[in-house]
Design a protein around this nucleic acid. Structure first.
Lengths: 333, 333
DNA sequence: TACAATAGGGTATACGCTTTCCCTATTTTT
DNA sequence: AAAAATAGGGAAAGCGTATACCCTATTGTA
C-alpha cells in the first residue's frame, strides 16, 4: 500500500503537506489541496492507523472486554458500544473469551497494548484492587455492570438488588405466596445480589423462602431445565419461579410444560435481562429489562469523555434500574 | 505507560535486549533475561502494539466487517471469527454498521487503515469489481457469504439455491402442495437465490407457485407478521410457509396463531438460518441450518493462511450446504 | 599456543506518520 | 514606500518498536 511519502513525491510536495491535507489542516492552498486529494484517490492511499497512533498517541479505537459474543446479552452490549463509537468516528476492538480471572486479565492487557483511548470493560472475576489500579492508569477506563465505590465515577451498573426485589414484589402483587428461585451457580456477585433483593421483598411480605426451593445451575437453558427437574424431584411446592436470567427461565418453562404443568396458569415464571428470546419464546416471557445496550452506550460515552480529559460532575452516578416487562408467563393467582 | 527504553535504562541493558526478551529472541543470557522480565512485571510494561505493527508491518489483528452485531446471525459470525483469532493469538477488530454501499466501503477502508493482516468481510452491496480489487490488494482478504468466480479461493459461502430447493423438497415430502413464500425485500442476492431453489423444487414436482403467494417484507419478525397478514388479506391458499429467515418465520407463526390457525396442524412453517431463537420459539422452529459460525471460522483460518503467504490448494472450494433441522413447526399433511 | 567459532549484547536505522519550527513570497497596514 | 502580517509550504525531530550489523569476551579446536 502507498505511503505518504509516495503521495508527496508524486504530487511534488512535502510529506508535511500531504499530512495537512489528510487531517484538514491549515497552510495548504486550494489548488495544492485538490491535487493531493486527487492523487490520494488515484493511488488508493489509506493512512496507516498504526503509524498515526504512534505519532499522536491516540488510537481512535475503543476497546471492549466481553465474555462471549455468542450470548445475546453480550452482543447487545457490543452493539451499544459500537453505536456510540461509530458516531465518534472510532472503531471498536473486541477482546475477551470466557469468564475467568486469567482470561479477563489477558483481554484487558491486550487492549492496553493497543493503547485504546477508551475501554469499556465487563469484568466479573478480577479483584477490586486490580481494577482500581487499571482505572488510575488508564483515563478512559470504564467498568460495566460492576460497582466499586473508590472509582464510582467509572462504573456503569445495574441495581441488581433492586431487580431481585422488583421481580419478587411483582409476583407477590399477582397473588403468589409460594416461590422457587432458579439461580446461577457462577461465582460472581450478581446472583447473590438478586437473591438478596428477593429475600428483602419476601420478608417484607412475611413470606418464607425454604432453602430447598432455591436451585443453582448453569445460567443457560439447560441449567433452567435441570433446576426445575431438581425442584420437582425434591417435591418442592411453588407457584412462582424467579429465574436468574431469560435463558434459565425459558428452560424452566420448557421443563414445566414437559411435566404437563401449564405456564402461567399453574406456575408463573419471570426472567431477567429481557434478551431477544424473551419475545420469541412461548408463552412470551415476563421479565426484568436489563437495559444493557443503553448502559453500554452510556459507558462508552463516559469512557470517551474521560479519555479526552473531560471529567463529568463528580457526584453523578451511573446506576441503572431494571424494570418489569409484562408479557405472558405470569398469571394472577 | 512505560516504554522499552525505560525498561532498558532501569535494567541497565540496551533497548534491543529488552526487545529480545519480549519476543523470546536469542542472544540474551539467562540472568539478564530474568532481570528484564522482573522489571517488566514491576513497571507493568505493555509493548505498544501500534509501534510493533509499524516496525513489523504485521498487526496481529483480524478485521471483521458485519452489518449489525445485534442480530444473532452476525453475533454468531463474529464469534466464529473470534474463536479462531484467539487461538492464533490475534485480536479482532470489528467494523461495520448498516447494510449499504457507502457504509460497507467505509468499514473496509477502516480495516485497511489498521493494516489488519487478515480480513473477513461480509459484504452484500459492493460490486464484484471493487471486491476483486480489494482481494488483489490485500493478501488476507476473504469474503463471507458471497461467491465471486474470479476470486473463488477467497470466498466462503452458502449454497442458497440448494437451500431453497431443500426447504421446498422437505415440505413436499411432508405432503404439502400449496405453498406461500415469505421473502425479504432487501436488494441483495440471497432471497433471489433461495426463491430460485424453491422454484426448482416445485417445478420438478409439478407444483405451481402463484405470484400472489409470494410476499416480500423486512427480514425480521414484523416483516414476517406483515407478510402473513397480506397473504390472508389477499385470500391466498396455502398449507406451507417458506420463510426467508427464522425471524420472519417466527413472525409468521405468531400471526397465524393470532388468526387461530394452528401451527403446524393447519399450516406448517419452515425458517432459514437456525439462529438461537429457532430453539426458543413455540412451536420450536423447523428450519435450515446456516452453519455461519463454522463458516466464519473457516473464513478466518483461510484469511490467516493467505495473510501468511500460504496458498491453499487452488481447486479447493469453500461452498457450504445448508441442512434441514427438524423441530416442531412442520407437520405431515 | 594460535585461531576460529560462538555467546551475549550494543548501535543505529527504518517503519509511516504528526507537528514544531523555520523560511519565503505576497498582501496588508501605516 | 517601508514595515508588518499573513499565506503557503518545507525540513526535521520524534513516537516505540524490530532488526541488521557490529563488537568483545569466552570457549572450543587444531
Amino acid at each position: 500500500m502507498a505511503t505518504m511519502k509516495q503521495i508527496a513525491d508524486v504530487a511534488g510536495v512535502s510529506q508535511a503537506t500531504v499530512s495537512r491535507v489528510i487531517n484538514e489542516g491549515p497552510k495548504v492552498g486550494y489548488a495544492t489541496r485538490q491535487r493531493v486529494k486527487d492523487i490520494i484517490k488515484e493511488l488508493n492511499y489509506r493512512p496507516n492507523a498504526n503509524a498515526r497512533a504512534l505519532a499522536t498517541s491516540r488510537s481512535d479505537t475503543v476497546g471492549v472486554v466481553v465474555a462471549d459474543l455468542y450470548e445475546p446479552f453480550f452482543a447487545a452490549l457490543a452493539h451499544g458500544v459500537d453505536t456510540v463509537a461509530r458516531k465518534n468516528g472510532t472503531q471498536i476492538l473486541i477482546s475477551g473469551g470466557t469468564i475467568g480471572e486469567e482470561a479477563e486479565r489477558k483481554a484487558i492487557d491486550t487492549l492496553l497494548g493497543h493503547r485504546c483511548d477508551a475501554m469499556v470493560v465487563h469484568s466479573k472475576t478480577l479483584e477490586n484492587e486490580e481494577l482500581i489500579g487499571l482505572a488510575n492508569m488508564v483515563p478512559g477506563f470504564v467498568l460495566l455492570n460492576r460497582f466499586i465505590p473508590e472509582i464510582a465515577g467509572r462504573c456503569v451498573w445495574l441495581d441488581n438488588r433492586a431487580g431481585g426485589r422488583l421481580m419478587a414484589e411483582y409476583m407477590i402483587r399477582q397473588g403468589h405466596r409460594k416461590f422457587a428461585v432458579v439461580s446461577s451457580g457462577f461465582p460472581i456477585d450478581d446472583p447473590i445480589h438478586r437473591i438478596e433483593g428477593i429475600r428483602d421483598a419476601l420478608s417484607d411480605a412475611n413470606i418464607e423462602l425454604p432453602d430447598m426451593n432455591i436451585e443453582h445451575g448453569a445460567p443457560n437453558q439447560e441449567g433452567g431445565e435441570a433446576a426445575i427437574q431438581n425442584l420437582m424431584s425434591k417435591g418442592a411446592d411453588f407457584t412462582a419461579v424467579l429465574a436468574y436470567n431469560d435463558a434459565m427461565a425459558s428452560g424452566a418453562m420448557t421443563m414445566l410444560m414437559d411435566h404437563d404443568i401449564e405456564v402461567p396458569r399453574q406456575v408463573s415464571v419471570i426472567g431477567y435481562d429481557d434478551i431477544i428470546l424473551a419475545k420469541y419464546c412461548r408463552p412470551k416471557l415476563t421479565t426484568l429489562r436489563y437495559p444493557i445496550e443503553m448502559m453500554a452506550s452510556k459507558a462508552t460515552e463516559l469512557a470517551l469523555q474521560y479519555a479526552q480529559g473531560v471529567t463529568p460532575p463528580v457526584n453523578e452516578t451511573f446506576k441503572f434500574q431494571p424494570t418489569v416487562v409484562k408479557r405472558d408467563s405470569v398469571a394472577r393467582i
